[in-house]
Amino acid sequence: MSKRHPIIAVTGSSGAGTTTVKRVFENIFRREGITAAVMEGDAFHRYTRVEMKERIAAADREGRPISHFGPDSNEWEALEGQFRDYGRQGRCKSRFYLHNDREAQPHGQEPGTFTPWQDIAADTDLLFYEGLHGCVKTPQVDLARHVDLKIGVVPIINLEWIQKLHRDTRERGYSTEAVSDTILRRMHDYVHYICPQFGETDINFQRVPVVDTSNPFIARDIPTAGESMTVIRFRNPSGIDFPYLLSMIDNAFMSRANTIVVPGGKMDLAMQLILTPMILRLMDMRRAQHS
């Protein structure tokens, strides 16, 4: 952790909704005049799309699991190195993984490839990471220890699968069968590397639908915000003004001493109310270190 160069990480699995949370942070940064360096977790995949397909085929022949969730397919040591560099000096490198033609065309590259590594912009106030592995801990790496504010985005698993199925079939051109195979292939790594991160996070936002999602593979629509509740768990509830949150968010209630539940349509408001003062505290500590 670094008071001088703070790092915020939003972590969640594919289709969990971390991109939506990213937009909330962007609004806070813009409103508060905060300049953030943005780092995408997909930048630290180890293989291009073509290379990954080759690794998956080989792993299937050998009867062993491999997925984008696990260590074999990611550069976690490189990611930890960039976190460390930013915490020490406010500078690091990143790149982009180009998911589709729309993202790839401006770079003159093929989808499923990476842009070259580049230095992030100078003179940023903080580093903002959004992706799969912002809080991973293994015997080899400990990403969580470098992060000052750790946010988990964790819809219940059926909802997560529905969101992934709709995104990957409608936006990325995959078949339902291909997405289902990916979900199955990732399960070992999901259990061992994705789930444990949510024990490291400072706050978890878990979206829970209140409509039937029993069979996510035949769901015609993603449950709307109005058909959901959001469970917000604080690792350390000390200093959280729960009476204020309850007064500001209609129909919110507390389910445990460290947990507040809000209507799904109020999730953005809840995030703004909860995260803005936390980010401003990081900025106050940063300014104190630079004075």
Rank of each mutant, 00 (worst) to 15 (best):
G112C: 14
F96K: 07
L98T: 02
P106E: 14
H68G: 11
D101F: 03
S73W: 02
D101V: 04
D60M: 03
Q109E: 14
D72R: 10
G112H: 12
A121P: 10
R88Q: 13
W76A: 01
D119H: 15
A59N: 09
R95I: 11
E77G: 03
P71W: 06
R64T: 01
L79M: 14
F69E: 02
L79S: 12
H107P: 01
H68E: 07
H68K: 04
R95L: 10
S67C: 14
A78G: 10
K93M: 13
Q118S: 11
Q105T: 13
D125Y: 05
D60V: 03
D123N: 15
A59E: 07
W117H: 05
L79P: 08
R102E: 13
G112P: 09
N100T: 10
F69P: 00
L98A: 00
P65G: 08
R95D: 10
T113G: 15
E75M: 08
H99G: 04
Q118C: 08
A59R: 07
Q89E: 12
H107R: 04
I66E: 07
H99R: 15
G70I: 03
L98G: 00
G87T: 03
Y86I: 10
H107G: 05
R64G: 00
F83E: 07
A78V: 11
I120S: 04
E77V: 01
Q109M: 15
D123F: 14
F83I: 04
D123R: 13
G81L: 08
P106Q: 05
D85W: 08
F114C: 09
A59F: 08
T113S: 15
D101I: 01
P71G: 01
E103Q: 15
H107F: 15
G90T: 12
L98M: 02
G63W: 00
Y86M: 04
H68W: 00
N100F: 11
G108K: 13
Q105I: 04
I120Q: 01
R61Q: 12
G87N: 06
E110C: 14
G70E: 02
L79G: 11
F114H: 01
D72K: 13
Y86F: 15
P65S: 06
I120H: 07
R61V: 10
E62Y: 06
P71V: 03
A78R: 15
N74S: 09
C92D: 04
A122N: 13
P111S: 10
S73D: 10
G87A: 10
D85H: 06
F69L: 02
D72S: 09
Q105C: 09
F69I: 01
Q82S: 09
Q82T: 10
T115M: 12
P65C: 11
R84N: 05
R91G: 07
Q82Y: 12
S67W: 00
H99P: 05
D72H: 12
R84W: 14
W76D: 09
T113Q: 14
D123W: 11
G81K: 09
L98I: 00
S94P: 00
C92E: 02
D60A: 12
F96G: 01
G70C: 05
Q89W: 07
R64S: 03
S67L: 13
P65A: 13
R88T: 14
D119M: 13
F114S: 01
D85S: 14
E77D: 00
D123Q: 15
T115S: 15
S67N: 11
G81D: 06
E75K: 14
D125G: 05
